[in-house]
Design a protein around this nucleic acid. Sequence first.
DNA 1: TCGCTGATCTGGTCTATACCAGATCGCGTT
DNA 2: AACGCGATCTGGTATAGACCAGATCAGCGA
Lengths: 259, 259
Amino acid sequence: MSVNSPLGAHRDPAMLTRQAGEDGDAPVYLVLRDALAEEIRTGAAGPGARLPSERDLAARFGVARMTARKALGVLESEGMIFRADRRGYFVSPPRIRYAPGSSVNLMRQLREQGLMTANHYLGRQQMGASDWLAAHLRAPVGAAIALERSVVEVEGRKIVYSEDFLRLDLLPGYAEAPYVSPMTQNIRRNYGVDPQPAWSRIRAATISSVAAQHLGVAAGTAGLTITHVQTHGGQVVMVNRCFWLSDAVDLVLGDAPEG
Amino acid sequence: MSVNSPLGAHRDPAMLTRQAGEDGDAPVYLVLRDALAEEIRTGAAGPGARLPSERDLAARFGVARMTARKALGVLESEGMIFRADRRGYFVSPPRIRYAPGSSVNLMRQLREQGLMTANHYLGRQQMGASDWLAAHLRAPVGAAIALERSVVEVEGRKIVYSEDFLRLDLLPGYAEAPYVSPMTQNIRRNYGVDPQPAWSRIRAATISSVAAQHLGVAAGTAGLTITHVQTHGGQVVMVNRCFWLSDAVDLVLGDAPEG
DNA sequence: TCGCTGATCTGGTCTATACCAGATCGCGTT
DNA sequence: AACGCGATCTGGTATAGACCAGATCAGCGA
């Protein structure tokens, strides 16, 4: 779809004037949201299609740019569209499905859904355990930790920023070995440690600024933070923390049917 | 805490001027966010304490009201504060913990955390299955459904709006009987049906306008929508859909330690 | 053809102002 | 003490304008 998209074309700028009847006292930005949602739903604009710019929409619907921006923000937080920093707004593809409780790792789950995926490895850092990390690893503050970072791209969009924290004292030789994916399998085979899922936490909040940077979204973007803790023999071996763009995913527990 | 809170008092309005050094080119609203976050963290303002108004903050920090509002919006989406419609902003209590996979029902989980809770029953409606409902219930469109609605209040704040959809053809006599809580137990004892959790879906999105209304928050507020499907003998008996204010809860899978 | 460059487009941020409606609080009456 | 009413405070919405920096793209030069 070009910038001259069908969305909003041939529209009477006055149509968004509040009517005493139908829309009652609904805010203008919600009326505009509904109009856009309807056009996305019925229109020829499929997933990935570009929406008109904020300024375009504002002009066509006869509202201020900030009002159009707010309407777009609602659609974004509903997951119907997503924005790419300074490039525009696009119609969202269907949410991918991810079962955080499953033993099948993320990349494999994605491939089983027939999605085009890429795993961008961002490198390794060695560090001492922070307060947060020490509490989660049940290790002393300052314990030697390896941090592996990566970004997962699905259908051309980066949607997950992942951090793996590994206890080096329980994984002798890890610091000298190269990165191998998938990580759990690598550890199981080469380090005599069999990490088992202990517990996970799902939190809806803005993603960290580092994550936002790597995902190419504005700081303060809404997301899901999922923390996985894996143990072996009563000891926490690794903690995985990943930041998801919240509109990209449905979390599934149990055997959900397709769709 | 009164409206004349310590937050932001005795502050030099010029302090938010962008510095070439420390803050680099961080947006003003993020600088203000950090300042407020720091004061909340270190200050005497405990959970439930009221923050200064948007206009107050704007004046004290020397920024426009919309900028102060944006900073507050970030803190809200991070879960550090929450807003009550037209009443002000308040420091958030710690997130409650909810294990959606547990067989223990929500109210009991809350009580086990020592929280003050209330379950507001909103009444019953009888209806025909919509497209969405028919798909989830694996029932024909228009099938007879009972809808039970309720709101859960924790520590004085309404944080969950819940809808239970029940297949009346599988629960003879339900339509004539009064509402009994907890629902699953009621059904198990009185209708010869033993609902078992089949699958659940967790989605981060804005909550529905109906939910927003019942929770007393602005339309378009960010939330979590959790859908539970329960079956008996291969048939879907009930579907529960609840809307959580996303800053109020941590979802837990497995045995997470305290804190 | 390739690579650079500058114009242009886009969202991101920020200001200043205005009005509305719900929530609250104080004051006066009963 | 209880009630009612209005002033005031609050966030919610909306406008119009402005500037910035990253992304993009057309066109030019090597």
